[in-house]
Design a protein around this nucleic acid. Structure first.
Length: 463
RNA sequence: GCCGGGGUGCCGGAACGGCCACGGGUGCGGCUGCAGACCGCAUUUAUGUGGGUUCAAAUCCCACCCCCGGCUCCA
């Protein structure tokens, strides 16, 4: 099954065909670990998680690498503020990133390379650039010489002259040209690395170029990140890597639109960032995923009460459907009902192949869910056709990384007992006592559904 | 200024030449001891503005207006 993805560099849609090429190498720019991750980060990594799931499901062999920038001015500043080493700060926030990522049901990368583990490789990379005169050493560091790379600006579609005119490029003493950027910065103080280049620290862009080359190869299939990385980060990566190797760095460049908070971009410097963990305390992982996937990945999304409460309602419908297929309650859906569900699932799958059109896929899932809930509501989910419905829905939910909240055996037993007790009370028409039990369960996010003689219960994300 | 992405009903968001997508919210009604889930109806014949092409345009063409983002560390 073919998958199409749009490429920022060429502006075209590029097809991936597992019968032509099985292995896909993906590199996604990860976070700089100096603070907790926010909803904007979550969106990007959720999108790439879905991409990865789709590629795997369609028969590709995916190798997924995502870096941690664990040496950087912000990390050092944070360390100084807290009176600890930069390594401790980095370690802490790597752990926290992974905790958030796991909570969001984002699959672990095959590899999480760290900048500090590749200092030697970066130095070698920079030496290669010095040897080919794409780089030069000056008083305060080693710089990449942008004018030695005539294609500079091809990704961000910005002409070098225009950038200089914008006059927002950093002017530094050691630069020959204002557009040149640091590969290695000389420092005597703070955390530094001794190298043939001199004592100092690596520039930011070089780590990705180096870690891609080292861990995935010269030309990878997909390189991605947030759209705020197009310039200068990815532009500079291209300049460095392609100057060194003479080959394209990536076949497809994917960029995820930014999250807006009200009218502005969500960002730590604007002090409007919502941490993933704070969101999860109030809502849950599926709500965040549904929210993130409700908008096409290339468009910007607004983080607002309104868009979130919509996601809550959407997830509720999906959640109920996922429970319904497990809590079968009769027999049997009609052929046209089965078809209705499977058609919606198929539409969703087609949408995922079409440049990862998750809003359309979600629509399909919602339509399938509604149909399932209707079948279940009429007490005929089970028997013939039910397993097809179940596997179609489960697979789609997996592709979007949506899953039911977990519940321990002990809690389940407890709930069972409470439900039984409540039904005894109901039989005796002692409704206020029965309702009190229901309210208690609700406080624990247990939802009850009475259907004739039977009572079904479901552990839900948001009640 | 330059580059990129947008403007569709109360809201979110599809369709990209032809049949009121879909979802959410709200209101009313059905089912229910109540609730949930489900069902029915309403809000809904919406497409930034002005021209043009066409039997037919959110959809194609031209001009204009407005919004967001990038151009500085940023997912």
């Amino acid at each position: 099954m073919q998958v199409r993805l749009s490429d920022t560099l060429s502006g075209r849609t590029i097809e991936l065909d597992p019968s032509a090429q099985k292995d896909i190498r993906v590199y996604v720019c990860g976070v700089t670990v100096y603070d907790y991750s926010h909803v904007g980060h979550a969106r990007t990594f959720i999108v790439f998680d879905v991409l990865r799931r789709v590629l795997m499901d369609r028969g590709f062999n995916v190798r997924y690498v995502q870096n941690f920038t664990d040496i950087d001015d912000k990390i050092i500043r944070r360390a100084n503020e807290e009176g600890v080493s930069y390594r401790e700060v980095a370690e802490k926030y790597i752990k926290e990133y992974l905790a958030d990522s796991d909570a969001l049901n984002i699959m672990r990368a095959d590899l999480y390379p760290r900048a500090t583990e590749h200092i030697g490789d970066m130095v070698e990379f920079i030496k290669g650039l010095l040897n080919s005169s794409h780089a030069y050493a000056s008083s305060d560091g080693v710089y990449f010489s942008v004018k030695t790379f005539p294609e500079y600006g091809k990704l961000s579609k910005v002409k070098p002259e225009e950038l200089i005119k914008g006059a927002r490029v950093e002017v530094k003493e050691g630069k020959r040209d204002p557009l040149d950027f640091a590969l290695w910065k000389f420092y005597d103080e703070g955390p530094t690395f001794e190298s043939e280049l001199g004592r100092g620290r690596p520039g930011w862009h070089i780590e990705c170029s180096t870690m891609i080359r080292k861990n995935l190869g010269t030309t990878i299939d997909i390189h991605g990140g947030g759209e705020d990385l197009i310039f200068p980060h990815h532009e500079n990566e291209i300049a460095q890597s392609e100057s060194l190797t003479g080959k394209p760095l990536a076949r497809i460049w994917m960029h995820v639109g930014l999250v807006k908070f009200g009218e502005e971009k969500m960002s730590k410097s604007l002090h409007n960032a919502v941490y993933i963990r704070d969101f999860l305390r109030q809502y849950g992982p599926n709500t965040l995923r549904v929210w993130a996937l409700s908008t096409h990945y290339r468009a910007q999304v607004e983080f607002s009460e309104r868009t979130i409460s919509e996601a809550v309602e959407k997830w509720k419908a999906i959640e109920d459907a996922l429970y319904s297929i497990r809590q079968q309650n009769g027999c049997c859906p009609s052929p046209s009902e089965v078809k209705e569900v499977l058609d919606a699932v198929e539409e969703a799958n087609a949408a995922l192949n079409d440049d990862l059109d998750t809003p359309r896929a979600l629509q399909g899932l919602l339509r399938a869910s509604r149909a399932v809930n209707r079948i279940w509501g009429s007490g005929s989910l089970g028997g013939e056709g039910a397993s097809e419905i179940a596997s179609g829905l489960e697979r789609l939910a997996w592709l979007l990384g949506l899953r039911l909240p977990e519940i321990g055996q002990e809690e389940a037993d407890e709930v069972e007992r409470a439900v039984k007790k409540r039904n005894e009370l109901r039989k005796e028409r002692r409704f206020s006592e029965a309702d009190r039990i229901r309210a208690e369960l609700q406080a624990r996010r247990i939802k009850l559904i009475d259907m004739g003689e039977r009572t079904f219960w479901r552990k839900v994300e948001v009640i």
